[in-house]
Each structure stands twice: as structure tokens, then as C-alpha cells.
């Protein structure tokens, strides 16, 4: 790991009118590090994620990102063109519902290839070879390449969405409940896959989840949010094994034991 962070967030707040979305969130994210943001619904996790991924503009605060040339750029001062370019090259965004992140009416191969074509790749054979390679990496059979995601199961769609995001070799991936709505065995495979990809590619990721097991499996560090504020943050194992804030203690003790 490098000693320079990839993303620096300081005093980020988002208000919806007088209501708090998230308030005064600060953290640094290092290259290759996975940060989990946990908390109950309505705690501001998704608002925070949307602000960080510039899908939403915060009310105050700053976030700066270290570009590939090593320069820090203030995210909310970039032009829209630069932000969108960043989003389809150096970043990925994995939605909870794959239909939000995929084009449901074009084939799986085109879904994976779209980012490549967006950055100027104009060789059909190479795009297709890359798509085949990525489908196999996310355990989708090669003969499904010309099928539309509509014909895929939920787990396959989610894996396709991940392939589509990772094809340009991003350095930072945002994930919003990546395993939400999947049954447990599919969840387990997906988590396994994600863990492998994150380690192999050295991705940094911010994972929003309400599932503490997901956080423990994927992340090195975690932040616990409640009512838009960060109530506790630290190494994942430390937070889960030795929760200090009363709310975290409640959260950890609420896990159902099978």
C-alpha cells in the first residue's frame, strides 16, 4: 500500500432541506483498501456513497481524488465532462439492483464492451475477446455472451454488472449493497468472487451494506453510521469484535445466530 491516500474526504455534509442526509463525514481511503459503510436504513449510507461518486452534490465539505498522474483533484470542482469521464474509466459503480447498472436490452458482451467503446476502442475482435475474458472471470459461460441480461438470473446479472465496471481497470469501485436481494448461496459465491477480484486487481472499494457479514468478509476498515453521522470507525475486526459505541454494540448484538 502507498502512503498517499487515493481519496480524501473532509467534513462532507448533505442536507435535504432541513433534514440531514449525512453530516460531517471525514476519512481517507488508501489504494487497495476496502472500506465498508454500515448502518441501518435511513442512516445516510447511500447518500454518502452518492456524494462520493459525484452522483449527488454535497451541501458542504470537500473530497479530493488522486488522479492517475498523482495530482489531487477536488471532485466537486471538476467539470461534468471530467467527472463523467472519471466515472467510466477510473471508477466503477455497482448498484444494488443490476437493472440500474446494466443495459437490459443489449447483449452481455456489449454491456461489458460499452466502457471500452466509450474510451475509444474501435476494434470489434479485441472488444469481444476482452468481453469473453471478463465473463469467464466472473464465472459466466462464454456461450451466454450474446444473451441479453434479461435472460440472466439475479446472481448472474450482478456478476455481469461487476464485469462491466471492472473492464477498464478502475482504481476505485463504489458498491451499494452488492449482495442485496440474492439468496445466501449466491451471495457467498459473489462475495468470494469480489474478494478475489479486489485482491488480484488491487482495487480500492467503498462498500455500503447493512449486512455485517459482508463487511467482515470484504473490508479491512469500516465506518458505522447512525442518523447521518459516523458513530464509530476502525479496523473491521476491531469494530465487530470490540464495539465501543452503544449503537455499534446494539448492531453487532442484533445479528441472528443460526
Amino acid at each position: 500500500m502507498s502512503d498517499v491516500p487515493l481519496l480524501r474526504v473532509s467534513a462532507l455534509s448533505k442536507f435535504y432541506g432541513s433534514r440531514i442526509g449525512c453530516e460531517n463525514v471525514s476519512f481517507d481511503l488508501w489504494p487497495g483498501e476496502v472500506l465498508a459503510v454500515v448502518g441501518e436504513s435511513g442512516s445516510g449510507k447511500t447518500t454518502l456513497l452518492n456524494c462520493l461518486s459525484t452522483r449527488l452534490l454535497p451541501s458542504s465539505g470537500t473530497a479530493s481524488y488522486r488522479m492517475r498522474d498523482g495530482q489531487f483533484r477536488e471532485l466537486y470542482r471538476m467539470s461534468e465532462a471530467e467527472r463523467r469521464f472519471l466515472m467510466r474509466t477510473d471508477w466503477g459503480f455497482v448498484h444494488q439492483n443490476p437493472a440500474d447498472g446494466l443495459r437490459m436490452t443489449v447483449s452481455a458482451g456489449a454491456n461489458v464492451g460499452e466502457r471500452l467503446m466509450a474510451v475509444g476502442d474501435r476494434h470489434y475482435g479485441k472488444i469481444r475477446a476482452t468481453a469473453v475474458d471478463w465473463l469467464s472471470r466472473v464465472e459466466i459461460d462464454e456461450d451466454r455472451i450474446d444473451d441479453e441480461p434479461r435472460a440472466f438470473s439475479g446472481g448472474m446479472r450482478q456478476r455481469l454488472q461487476i464485469a462491466r465496471n471492472l473492464v477498464t481497470g478502475p482504481r476505485l469501485v463504489f458498491m451499494d449493497e452488492p449482495t442485496g436481494g440474492l439468496d445466501v448461496s449466491v451471495q457467498a459465491r459473489l462475495l468470494d468472487l469480489l474478494r478475489g477480484l479486489v485482491t488480484d486487481l488491487g482495487l480500492a472499494a467503498i462498500v455500503v451494506t447493512h449486512d455485517l457479514a459482508v463487511a467482515r468478509l470484504l473490508s479491512q476498515r469500516m465506518m458505522v453510521m447512525k442518523d447521518g453521522r459516523v458513530v464509530e470507525s476502525g479496523l473491521t475486526d476491531r469494530v465487530l469484535d470490540d464495539p465501543r459505541a452503544p449503537y455499534t454494540q446494539l448492531l453487532v448484538s442484533s445479528i441472528l445466530q443460526v
Binding site: E80, A81, R84, R88, R103, V106, S107, G109, A110, G113, E114, R115, M117, A118, V119, R122, Y124, I127, R128, I145, D146
Partner: peptide, 22 residues
């Protein structure tokens, strides 16, 4: 309109890709 303004035309090639794939 935004895609035209920002010259984001990757999608146009997605259509041609689909043609070749099919």
C-alpha cells in the same frame, strides 16, 4: 442532449457491436 454536449458516443458503437454479434 448531455451525451451530445459531452461528446459521449460510446453507446453508438454499442449498437454496431450488437449488429455484428447478432
Amino acid at each position: 442532449r448531455k451525451m451530445h454536449a459531452l461528446e459521449e458516443y460510446g453507446l453508438m458503437h454499442v449498437k454496431l457491436y450488437e449488429d455484428i454479434a447478432r
